Simulated scan of single mutants.
Amino acid sequence: MSSDEAVARKRVAGVMQGRVDEIADRWVQLQVRHAAVSAGTRESELREEADALVAALAAGLDSALPVDRIANSHADLNRAVTELSLRRARSGESPTATALAVLALKEALLEAVRESTQDGGELFSAALLINRLLDAAGALSFDTYVEGREEIIHRQSRQLLELSTPVVRLWKQVLGVPLIGTLDTARTQVVMENLLQAIQDQEATVAIIDITGVPTVDTAVAQHLMQTVNAVRLMGADCIISGIRPPIAQTIAQLGIDLSTIMTRATPADALSEAIKLTVGSLPASNGPSDGPASR
């Protein structure tokens, strides 16, 4: 570390430690002015973030860590930046708003340092140090924000897949999965996991996979169906595919897809009738609608 940098670091650290509340207040004001936060964000929340981050920055500068490594290596500062970024990602803030917040903190720090020194060279060195420090913090914030948004998007996609592939109890020991739309690898995995768990929880012996709402069946879709059927069989249950419409039957035949080992029926009603035969052989009155459908 050069002597100029050491002096600048000492100067900035001293200013921050002596004016933490003032810098935090100023940062909140600048964020509101620059529209770096959404309209619904409360000022008290911003002040809480500002207090934590400014205090952590001051502690980081007071440590022995190189300036470029403080944001990533100083535990308190790393945690403050990470929590701020994740909080803003979850609240729907844009990456631009988060970047503007970092720039606003630079402005607040530079104002505080400028008010405490009249030396142009020292002020310039302090400005360079603040830029290096907060550029590293900004990069960490951006990376954390992106990871947080990806996690949120993945979780929401998973929830949507689960909602679009419900496992329904059609009859005693009979489950149904109505599929609508394209059956891809991700959706197949969700269908398989939900169906196998439902078979275990409800002690089902027959699963009906209805593809009436699947627009087309190609080799990939057929492969996904085979995987699901094989997994169901490994659980000791039978599997019936319903909804084989004439165009789909023709396509399957033209593609040479072999579904001969799988029980298929034209309609869900036909599949349910076959499932009842497989489970009870006949239909006692007590097993009628009183056992009715229930969603998992």
Rank of each mutant, 00 (worst) to 15 (best):
L234K: 09
A56P: 09
Q254T: 14
N131R: 14
N72G: 13
S38M: 11
V146W: 08
L65I: 12
V7H: 14
P95C: 05
E274V: 06
N287G: 09
E162V: 04
P166V: 09
L278R: 10
D119W: 04
V206R: 04
A108C: 09
R69S: 15
D25H: 13
R132A: 14
R9L: 07
G288D: 10
V191F: 09
T205P: 00
L255W: 03
G213Y: 08
A204P: 04
D270L: 02
T261W: 01
T98D: 10
L225K: 02
T117H: 09
L86F: 02
T216P: 00
Q173D: 09
S38R: 11
V217R: 02
V190N: 08
P268K: 03
A101K: 08
T98Y: 00
A64Q: 14
V177I: 12
R187E: 07
P166C: 08
I257Q: 02
L86G: 06
I262L: 01
M263G: 00
P246C: 03
G92P: 07
I276N: 01
Q173R: 13
L61Q: 14
T41Q: 04
R19N: 15
P247I: 04
L160G: 06
A50I: 06
E147F: 00
D21F: 02
V15D: 11
M263L: 06
T185F: 03
A275Q: 00
H34A: 13
F124V: 13
E22H: 10
T219F: 00
A13E: 12
A237N: 04
A101P: 05
A186M: 05
L109F: 15
Q31F: 00
A271I: 00
V37Y: 07
R265L: 01
T267A: 02
V167N: 07
H224W: 00
T41G: 01
R169N: 11
T98V: 15
D270V: 00
I199D: 10
L109E: 15
S282I: 06
L161E: 14
A50T: 08
Q254K: 12
L161F: 10
L140Y: 08
V7D: 15
G92H: 07
L196F: 08
V102R: 08
I180E: 07
A89T: 10
S91T: 13
Q159L: 09
E203H: 14
R47C: 01
D201Y: 09
H74L: 03
W27A: 06
V102I: 13
D238N: 11
T228N: 04
D184G: 03
Q118H: 13
Q254D: 11
E45W: 08
D184N: 08
I70P: 07
Q29K: 14
A97D: 12
L163R: 06
L46D: 07
Q173P: 00
R47K: 11
S116H: 12
E193C: 02
G40A: 06
A97M: 14
P166Y: 12
I248R: 03
M235Q: 04
A269V: 07
P66H: 12
R132L: 11
E147Q: 13
F142A: 15
A64H: 13
S44G: 03
V28P: 05
V7R: 15
A56E: 11
L283K: 01
E111Q: 15
S295T: 12
A222M: 03
T185G: 05
D62K: 14
G92N: 07
I257M: 05
G40Q: 07
T96L: 11
A97L: 05
R87M: 04
R33G: 01
V221W: 04
E147V: 03
L272I: 02
M1N: 13
